[in-house]
């Protein structure tokens, strides 16, 4: 073994992983970028340059429609998702993690909030389809509304509500994740600092806002980035809950990618959407890698 230099040995150890990453990540990614300049099915047919991208941003009104107000399309829906899903999950997750901490029912509360994390997106979609059903005899939400004297609302079948209704379902799932991370971080906070603050006369709100939250900044950014990346990748929740409908109003980028590639077999066009996803995700991934490196040092 003495004849093998340390450098070579390092490469040897990394080789299996490098091989797998190249095979299953790097090559398919390059292949997808290549596909995005072609028309045709799973065999690229004709080179068309940037035509797929041009169509995506100027002529596909289900992807981006700037012709009327409010603007619409999968891209804009996804921006709503990126704003409200991480924000909602972080807000609820933090609130529950902090308020339930040291509460006599802490365990029960956390188990209940944790449950959605083990429920698949498909099952969540079906649960919420029932919950949102327009018929008050089936839909819980509308049953509550009608019992209070309001009219039932078409949660999943109107352009105004559908995206927010789906985001709410996703918040239900991701609150569990956020709470778990925040709860662990909160428990690990330096209690002496907090006690010192109490002695100095700080209120609970001040302690949370000025001491606990800044000390948990790392956890918050970790949760944010994780949910951000997941949000771009969501397909199943939308597919099962609404099929992207009504009339394409609840599409998001991941859904459009799936739909164009596998439903319409427009693989080049689907690849172009995947490239857009990659472009959105790249900066976030670079940020994440930098953070990991910084933490190692």
């Amino acid at each position: 073994m003495g004849t093998v230099s340390n450098n070579t040995r390092g490469w040897l150890f990394a080789a299996p992983v490098l091989l797998l990453v190249t095979l299953y990540l790097v090559i398919p990614t390059l292949w997808t970028v290549y596909f995005s300049f072609f028309t045709g099915g799973f065999q690229p047919d004709r080179f068309i340059g940037f035509e797929n991208f041009r169509r995506l941003f100027t002529r596909d009104r289900l992807f981006l429609d700037l012709s009327g107000f409010p603007w619409s399309g999968a891209l804009l829906n996804n921006i709503l998702w990126l704003v409200f899903l991480p924000a909602g999950a972080i807000a609820f997750g933090m609130t529950i993690a902090v308020l339930a901490d040291a509460h006599p029912w802490e365990r029960v509360i956390k188990v209940i909030v944790f449950v959605p994390i083990v429920v698949s997106n498909t099952a969540t979609a079906i649960i919420f389809r029932f919950l949102y059903n327009m018929n008050p005899r089936i839909g819980f939400l509308n049953a509550v509304l009608t019992s209070l004297g309001f009219k039932p609302r078409p949660w999943l079948s109107s352009r105004e509500y559908v995206t927010f209704a789906l985001i709410a379902a996703a918040v239900w799932i991701w609150t569990a994740f956020a709470m778990t991370v925040f709860s662990a971080t909160y428990k690990a906070l330096d209690k002496d600092t907090l006690q010192a603050a109490t002695v100095d006369g700080a209120g609970e709100w001040q302690k949370f806002w000025l001491i606990s939250l800044p000390m948990m900044a790392h956890a918050v950014s970790f949760v944010f980035i994780t949910i951000f990346i997941q949000t771009i990748k969501i397909v199943d929740l939308v597919l099962v809950a609404t099929d992207g409908g009504p009339a394409g109003a609840s599409r998001i980028i991941g859904f459009s990618f799936y739909w164009e590639t596998f439903q319409n077999l427009d693989v080049g066009y689907g690849s172009a959407i995947a490239v857009v996803m990659l472009v959105i995700l790249l900066p976030v991934m670079v940020l994440q890698v930098r953070r990991f490196k910084a933490e190692e040092q």
């Binding site: 289900l62 099929d243 009339a247 394409g248 439903q263 319409n264 427009d266």
Partner: peptide
């Protein structure tokens, strides 16, 4: 073709219904 019978018609007729 799927893009017409399984996508465009779906979208257009749902819009028409709304």
């Amino acid at each position: 073709p799927g893009a017409v019978g399984g996508d465009a018609m779906f979208t257009a007729l749902q819009e028409f219904l709304m």
